[in-house]
Design a binder for these strands. Structure first.
Lengths: 227, 227
DNA sequence: AAGGATCCTCACAACTTCCTAACGGCGAAA
DNA sequence: TTTCGCCGTTAGGAAGTTGTGAGGATCCTT
């Protein structure tokens, strides 16, 4: 995933709100919270959410109003929490633009599963994490490199080494660090291999391999990936 | 409305099934029904639905299996009905690819509202259920492959493997991933089998099995399906 | 019980990848 | 200037991976 999913949680019960925030953050969501409808709309405007979780029993505003105001400018999935199990409430919330409706009390598992289901079809989840290296495009997830429209083939070791660089952009990496990360412990004396594979990567990725602009060497120290 | 929404309803209870069909037709949906998982998949292949409503308690097949088989070729929303309120059931169904989960008994209003919500965010249901692999045409929904006008027979294992590829087009899949997805956990050391079935798929699908253009190998890394 | 289909293991040739060694260029220190 | 260390590059054999064929074991159907 290129970027963490941002979730807006609006609930007037402080205990439930913090419990939800903790659970969600434990599952690698970025969470913003609000206790009222007005506050929720403000926070949403400031941090556009990928998913919104909204309690219907807000003190200052009708739940359906919050939903409609959000729907006016975002297509992010809206998941409604409510203590009322009345089917009329559900119908109103869903028809106002909500995507799902969960009645309290609910299991945390279930809420998380419904969030996953909502995020799955969200338009933001289509992006694949790509990194540019000179004229080449690196897609780590698909394990694919294209340069000038053509596929570039990398060997396993080349991938492993490139991954270390892409994961630490701009950072100076010592020979030891690189060898340990790409080859594993025990291979820390194979400086020759490292030089070899750096050359391979430059030849395959850089526009002018003899004058690299992104895979740079700092003599005596190590290598640096400059995005 | 330019075109009526097609709904597939799968339930083994004849009374509930006909009641649902009547209600839905009264709301201008076009309804197709089935009583078993197998029948449901057949009907779905024949009349690609815009939304599917599936009961989990089917006599012949796991509910999650039905969901996964549908998800293999269509993005249409799947709404699950179930008598079981256990949160584990919900999590499994949702993670298998379902979009919503309603526990029986439910109000007709609510089901209709959830259907509207599902239909609202459904993108243009143009997802073609067929994929081209060289000279062969793969129809995942109907579980049928044709090549040069003739039917090609695939064994269950071959289907399972092919399905993984078609679901991850362009992405490199490691041996481990493929073995786990097609054979299940525990079979991760059977590299020989994987080579064998790759050869089978290539022989049956590719134009020139010795020089594959779509089922590609990247030595040391895994395989890639290039559409 | 026989037949057929499916699944899996083994073996070997062809291929790719990996690593080591060696050579020349460059810059800094003696 | 010489010496030394570090870096980039090339070449070739070792090691691992893949494609392919044959054959046995298992399961299901007839």
């Amino acid at each position: 995933m290129t970027e963490a999913t941002h979730v807006l949680v609006v609930d007037d019960d402080p205990d439930l709100l913090s419990a939800l925030a903790i659970t969600l953050r434990a599952h690698h969501y970025v969470v913003h919270t609000a206790r009222t409808g007005t506050e929720g709309l403000e926070v949403a405007a400031q941090h556009p959410p990928d998913i919104a979780v909204i309690d219907l029993g807000l003190p200052d505003m009708e739940g359906t109003t919050v939903i409609e105001r959000l729907r006016a400018w975002t297509d992010a999935p809206i998941l409604v929490l409510s203590g009322r199990a009345d089917s009329l409430d559900k119908v109103e919330a869903l028809d106002a633009g909500a995507d799902d409706y969960v009645t309290k009390p609910f299991a945390a598992d279930e809420l998380l599963a419904r969030l996953r289901a909502a995020a799955r079809r969200a338009p933001t989840s289509d992006a694949s994490p790509v990194v540019e290296v000179g004229g080449a495009t690196v897609d780590l997830a698909a394990r694919r490199v294209t340069k000038a429209g053509l596929d570039v083939h990398l060997t396993p070791t080349e991938w492993q080494l490139l991954e270390v660089f892409v994961r630490n952009p701009g950072k100076l990496l010592s020979r030891q660090t690189l060898l340990r990360s790409a080859w594993g412990p025990g291979y820390e004396s194979a400086a020759g291999s490292l030089r070899l594979y750096m050359a391979q990567l430059r030849r395959k990725l850089e526009d002018d391999p003899a004058r690299p602009k992104h895979l740079l060497n700092e003599p005596g120290l190590g290598y640096r990936f400059q995005p």
